[in-house]
Simulated assay, not measured.
Amino acid sequence: MKKNLQQWGWMLAIWAASIAALGAVSIGFRLLMTAAGLKS
C-alpha cells in the first residue's frame, strides 16, 4: 500500500513539474515575442 501511494506521489510530482515547465516556456515565448514587437 505504501509503495503504491509513493508511486502516485511521484507521478503527481512529475505531472505538476511538467505543467510548470510548459507554463514557464509559454511565458518565455510571450516575452520574446513582445520584445520582438509581435503583440497580439
Results as ranks from 00 to 15, higher is better:
M33V: 13
S40Y: 09
A21F: 12
I27T: 11
S26K: 13
A24Q: 11
L12S: 08
K39Y: 01
L5F: 03
A24F: 14
S18K: 15
L31E: 03
A35S: 00
N4F: 06
L31Y: 01
S40I: 12
A36D: 05
W15N: 08
L32M: 10
L12H: 00
L38D: 01
L5I: 07
A35M: 01
A35D: 01
G9V: 02
Q6I: 10
L12N: 03
L12Q: 01
W8F: 08
Q6L: 09
A24T: 12
M33H: 08
Q6G: 07
K39H: 04
L32I: 11
M33W: 15
L22N: 14
I27K: 10
A17K: 06
I27R: 11
I27Y: 12
A36E: 06
I19E: 06
S18M: 15
G9W: 00
R30Q: 11
W8P: 04
Q7V: 13
A35F: 00
M1E: 04
W8H: 11
I14T: 09
M33F: 14
R30D: 12
A20K: 07
G37N: 00
K39V: 02
A36T: 02
I19Q: 15
M11P: 05
L22T: 15
G9M: 01
A13I: 05
S18L: 15
W10N: 12
Q7G: 10
W8K: 11
L32C: 06
G9D: 03
A16D: 02
L5W: 00
G23S: 15
A36Y: 05
F29G: 13
N4H: 05
G9H: 01
A20W: 09
M11F: 10
G37T: 00
I14D: 08
A24C: 12
S26H: 13
A20E: 02
K3S: 06
A24P: 06
R30I: 10
F29Y: 14
G28Q: 04
G28M: 05
N4V: 05
Q7N: 11
A21C: 06
V25N: 10
S40G: 15
Q6Y: 08
Q7R: 13
A20M: 14
W8I: 09
L31F: 03
V25Q: 08
I14M: 07
A21V: 11
A17W: 12
L32S: 07
W8Y: 09
L31N: 02
G28S: 05
G23K: 13
M33T: 08
S40R: 09
S18I: 15
A13P: 11
A21S: 10
L31Q: 04
I14S: 10
V25S: 07
L38Q: 02
L32A: 11
L31C: 02
L5P: 03
G37R: 00
T34D: 07
L32W: 06
L32H: 03
A36W: 03
W15P: 07
A21P: 09
A21H: 07
Q6D: 08
S18H: 15
G28V: 06
A13Q: 06
Q6E: 11
F29H: 14
L5T: 05
W10R: 14
V25D: 10
F29M: 13
A17G: 14
G23Y: 14
A24R: 11
A17C: 08
A21M: 07
A17H: 04
M1I: 06
I27L: 13
W10V: 13
